[in-house]
Amino acid sequence: MTPPVDDFPCNEFVELVTEYLEGALPPAEVVRLEDHLAICGGCASVLDQFQTVIRLSGRLSESDVGALAPSEREPVMAAFRTWAANRN
């Protein structure tokens, strides 16, 4: 068995990480890229890091859940009430 030919340069891979993750690459390109990933620890680590960046970014919105403090809620609710009362 001959080893696979790796014709995928690392500097090209790093520019295609997002396209790869988005499923935007043509299937033949995906095969070449995954062959390269299988033998290149450097590029595999770049892929891992992009995935980590995405995962950590998602954590930034976690503090958004939960009800508003009354001091924030009341003025806006009052605007809604006024609008509702005056619309007819």
Binding site: G42, C43, S45
Partner: peptide, 24 residues
């Protein structure tokens, strides 16, 4: 560990460090 790009290793940070308030 890489073809032309050396392996990067910060994904080996402990999870507690990765998800720490300072990192975020």
């Amino acid at each position: 560990g890489g073809r032309s790009l050396p392996r990067l290793d910060w994904e080996h940070q402990p999870e507690s460090r990765l998800l720490g308030a300072e990192t975020l």
